[in-house]
Amino acid sequence: MEQVIANGLYLGAQYALIALGLTLIFGLMNVLNFAHGQMYVLGGFITYAIYGQLGLPFPVAVVASGISLAVIGGLMERYLFRTVIRRSHREESTMLLAAATAFFFDAVILLIFGEKQRGVPKIVKGVFNDFGVIMPYDRIVVAVLAALMILGFILFMKYSRTGRAMRALAQDRVAAQLMGIKVDRYTMIGFALGAMLAGVVGGLLVSITGVNSGIGGPISVKAFLMIMIGGAGVVGGAIAGGFILGMMESVGLTVLREYGDVTYLVIFAALMIFLAIRPNGLMGKPWG
């Protein structure tokens, strides 16, 4: 059972980090970024190219992934989403745009990086094996980094000027504008930050799970699941959703294994019932 809990916590940490960027963008702009998984994949491939192919240090590669995705995210907001939001009166226009960018990224990534699964050398060798728990050290490092990044993100959102501005935007866009907050500027920063988180987590996890050009869609779906559980647009909700999903997977795959692949069936059934009772997820409205 110790192993099952450890697996769940590790999965939860990585899931929470994936969901943070998605929920940030949703909270700020009311946009479901279908390309979030593709951003994760792109971040993974950038780290693969810099660390795995060029042989530069892993932290350099992860930082490069984060910066690259932040720039891409900023440009996407400035030249795509901002334009569509201004010109279109239909909310689904941004969803269509997000879906289109997801397909576009899929095609570009496949073209540039090919169809093969890619991986990089382990960042830390060895396996922790004690107290009934087996956990490779590189997973422990990634889990700790994920936890630190989540903590850093919460502190940034709570205490920094930029974070406070973004929270104000998420709470009430018009009121924030009347209070003198530069809406366009902070929306772009928020989108870039969300994309950066996707890139960084993609870069971090390429050392554990590798990356391939086709996994963007499934990653996005899982991230949507998490923010539905926790409450879309809520940072705490994304974290809670990530850990809940991670633990449900870990426990389900152990306890229900005798019944075949019913774990996700149970998770989806539970989610439907849960959403019928709490349609806004665990934590309700954006930014609580």
Binding site: Q3, V4, N7, G8, Y10, L11, Q14, R139, L205, I208, T209, I215, P218, I219, E249, S250, L253, T254, R257, E258, Y259, G260, D261, Y264
Partner: peptide
């Protein structure tokens, strides 16, 4: 003979533990 996983699984540790 019953253990399965979703094809898009990225982390197989929970599936393989048992």
């Amino acid at each position: 003979d019953k253990d399965t996983y979703q094809n898009d699984t990225r982390d197989f540790t929970p599936v393989l533990t048992p």
